[in-house]
């Protein structure tokens, strides 16, 4: 397997009136061809900003990519001109968002919206693009696609709209699909259908997927490797099998212990006490220290570097 995307020491900071907020701080990971990478984290962990950085869609101001590199198929994305990025976005790298209602334009039919993407990026006539759009809708399991292609977004259910988003994302046969919380707004039975659809499409098109979620269950089901983020940092990074069977970082372990499991009876949940720290550039020590049960003096004074052990990476003094 060769590397499709290599993110190296990515830093995306937000310059606000309250100071500089390091939303993504020295984040590195790779996505292989045909692989699914899960990025898990809670709100404020920097997982969505990481995705927006790859797409070069960080809102500016206040955000700015201040360091690192993003290498996609041997090309550096961070030095690309805006018009060059436009050739990549939606074409080579596609993104689907959490809320299919707000990411579809209510004034245009879904067909028009898929056709627009196709005509922009591929050398197709409108008629050819329309046929392709119908073909894509069929592929994502929308019944009678030749009729539904002329529907407006409000005529469809939430699950159907997310299928349309996926059809749109996949219409140009991208190498990489970034799915930011693709099932969070959906019901569990619909979520199961959508996750299955993404895996199936990945197989069929031999593409890579980055799935961003707060749901560890979703990652366990669909991802090959997982990046666990907390307050802008990668805390743990490894294969899903390793990380889930033996989480190394206290945060990863805490996160797993704090979710109620359907197949286990437990009287009391182990929770992670406290809340996310307010980040500034001057933050001292490990970012998880105030909530960590194992924190000692060194954790408050210095931040641990990320180290590699047994084929995975972890950022904790316990392993140094």
């Amino acid at each position: 397997m060769d590397t499709l995307l290599k993110v190296n020491s990515l830093k995306t900071y937000f310059y606000t009136i309250d100071g500089v907020m390091p939303a993504v701080d020295d984040v590195s990971f790779e996505v292989m061809r045909g692989e699914t990478l899960g990025i898990v984290g809670e709100s404020g962990s920097g997982k969505s900003v990481t995705a927006l950085s790859i797409m070069r869609l960080v809102p500016h101001p206040p955000g700015r990519i201040v360091g690192g590199s993003i290498n996609f198929k041997g090309d550096e994305l961070l030095t690309k001109k805006e018009y060059e990025m436009r050739m990549i976005r939606g074409n080579k790298i596609a993104m689907i968002f959490q809320d299919p209602m707000t990411s579809l334009n209510p004034l245009f039919t879904i067909g028009d919206q898929i056709i627009e993407a196709l005509v922009t990026h591929q050398d197709l006539s409108r008629r050819e693009a329309r046929d392709r759009a119908i073909e894509m809708l069929k592929l994502v399991g929308i019944p009678s696609p030749e009729k539904r292609v002329d529907d407006y977004p409000h005529q469809m259910s939430g699950g159907m709209r997310q299928r349309v988003m996926i059809a749109m994302g996949l219409s140009c046969r991208p190498d990489l699909l970034i799915a930011d919380e693709p099932t969070t707004a959906l019901d569990v039975t619909i979520q199961a259908q959508i996750l299955e659809l993404i895996s199936e499409m990945k197989q069929k098109m031999n593409m890579s997927v980055i799935i961003i979620t707060h749901d560890l269950g979703v990652v366990a089901e669909v991802a090959d490797r997982v990046v666990v983020m907390y307050a802008g940092r990668v805390m743990e990074y490894g294969s899903v099998k390793d990380v889930f069977s033996m989480p190394l970082h206290p945060y990863t372990r805490g996160l797993m212990d704090s979710i109620p499991k359907i197949d286990v009876n437990e009287d009391r949940l182990k929770s992670i006490e406290g809340t996310l720290p307010t980040l500034t550039e001057k933050f001292k020590g490990c970012r998880f220290k105030d909530r960590c049960v194992m924190a000692d003096r060194v954790c408050h004074e210095e931040e641990p570097p990320i180290v590699e052990i047994d084929n995975r990476q972890v950022r904790c003094f316990k392993y140094i």
């Binding site: 259910s157 699950g159 159907m160 569990v188 039975t189 979520q191 199961a192 259908q193 996750l195 299955e196 749901d215 560890l216 269950g217 979703v218 990652v219 366990a220 089901e221 899903v240 099998k241 889930f244 069977s245 797993m256 979710i259 499991k261 359907i262 197949d263």
Partner: peptide
């Protein structure tokens, strides 16, 4: 039964059989 089988389980070693529900509500 379908609802229970649809929940993603945070344990990659447990692959459970899923009851597929077709169609919408």
């Amino acid at each position: 039964a379908a609802l229970l089988s649809a929940i993603p389980i945070p344990d990659p070693s447990k692959k459970h059989s899923r009851i597929r529900l077709e169609g919408d509500v």
